[in-house]
Design a protein around this nucleic acid. Structure first.
Lengths: 235, 235
DNA sequence: CTCACTTTGTGCACCGGTTCACAAAAGGAC
DNA sequence: GTCCTTTTGTGAACCGGTGCACAAAGTGAG
């Protein structure tokens, strides 16, 4: 039984699609600034660095917002994607850990831009507490639960040392937060229902190193030979 | 050099596996520090936050390094994964863009730890050039090609403003670099054969917001009831 | 109106990756 | 040696996502 209407829309936008929507949104904003009224899937796909069939399928998950023979209305699509991503509301974000990285995040412009507002900075170091960064007063980690409650924080960014991250995560979750962006190089364990996204600089570098090694190996002829001449001598 | 080629090992470790190897490596290092000699796939999987079948399949792509009934030798596995990732050699990394983020990256400890060495900091701003950060002298972007050549830089980290990123990327690629870690919120276009990894803070937040919205929608009132746009037929 | 052209939305085949479940291998007890 | 326990390595089913290719839907000209 196939339900038409927006059956695809309600339940379950594919995770891969969700991850690309912000990309489309950014490209669309650029186009809106340049005054474009409509855009074809082909052009938008190029701007976002994906292929056009994928883009159309992604957008079709939100609903049927294009016009055949014409394309998509830029402003309208911006609105729809923003709404889908929840950017039409205001999200209060707390950053825990005001070291180099936390400081950078607090000052990062694009961070605050759309729908997000850094509502609190917290740290355990008494030397840092009281500092003013990006227009905010750094508060002591003891205030964590109170700050989360008072300011309606719903997303927490962890920029603490690895050793402190799990402990802070536990407190944050206990305080009712269910969305965490983790920069600490540890695997956090959290209860069902809490979303964690992880950004790990050192892992990214290691992945690059793997491919880089492979490329230079190939140059120098070793493993490239092996590829063309599947060895009979096995281990 | 004579290579033993256990069937799966010859060229082509799945990308998803490569992305997890650093995770295993980190967990293994922790275990080595605590003095464990061997570890089962189950225990290592828990420490790395994956399921054990996946871990075994991942490791099997490197070769058959486990012992049935026993598990894996911690030190040996560390060595094998390090070698596979190319961490047994020394990678010279240049960071372009010494704003808040670039500074944070330069000082980030875990960054430098294993196999990676920040060999250069570059910026276009004359006020920043000449500063000493993390023991390095900030050089002018004009020196980019010379620095890359002289110091054998093979991985470049882009922490520039969005507007400058593509331009720098072009120069970096022209100078022979084929691995880029991009923090600027733009889609870079580079020739075939150049690997780019992208870290985008704002995208991560937007993905979290999507899920957070969905969770709170579910709490309040019905399942995202008719969140259609204001007008049913407009536009 | 019809015809030519553009561009969306999607059915379908395909592919990489995940998970299950189990045979094969290793070690220890006797 | 045999038997029992543990744990790896992997075949095979499954699943989510991608990309092709095309019918459907729209525009515009005549």
């Amino acid at each position: 039984m196939i339900r038409r209407l927006s059956q695809a829309r309600e339940r379950g936008i594919p995770e891969a699609t969700v991850a690309r929507l912000p990309l489309y949104l950014r490209a669309l904003n650029g186009m809106a600034e340049r005054g474009l009224a409509t855009v074809s899937s082909e052009d938008l796909a190029v701007a976002a660095g994906v292929n056009s069939a994928k883009l159309r399928k992604d957008l079709s998950h939100l609903g049927s917002y294009g016009t055949r023979g014409v394309g998509y209305d830029v402003e309208y699509l911006i609105y729809q994607i923003s709404r889908e991503l929840g950017l039409t509301q205001d999200w209060a974000v707390a950053i825990v850990g005001v070291g180099n990285l936390g400081r950078a995040l607090a000052n990062y412009g694009g961070f605050v831009s759309r729908g997000f507002r850094v509502a609190a900075l917290l740290d355990a170091d008494p030397d840092v507490v009281g500092d003013h960064i990006a227009g905010l007063n750094v508060e002591h980690i003891d205030e964590l639960e109170a700050v989360i409650r008072r300011r309606g924080v719903s997303i927490v960014v962890l920029a603490t040392p690895a050793a402190a991250a799990q402990q802070v995560a536990d407190r944050v979750v206990a305080a009712g937060v269910t969305s965490i962006l983790n920069f600490a190089p540890v695997v956090l364990s959290v209860p069902e229902g809490v979303d964690i996204r992880k950004v790990d600089l050192s892992i990214e570098l290691q992945i690059l190193a793997f491919h880089e090694q492979r490329k230079t190996d190939r140059m120098s002829g070793g493993p490239a030979m092996a590829e063309e001449w599947p060895e009979a001598v096995d281990l």
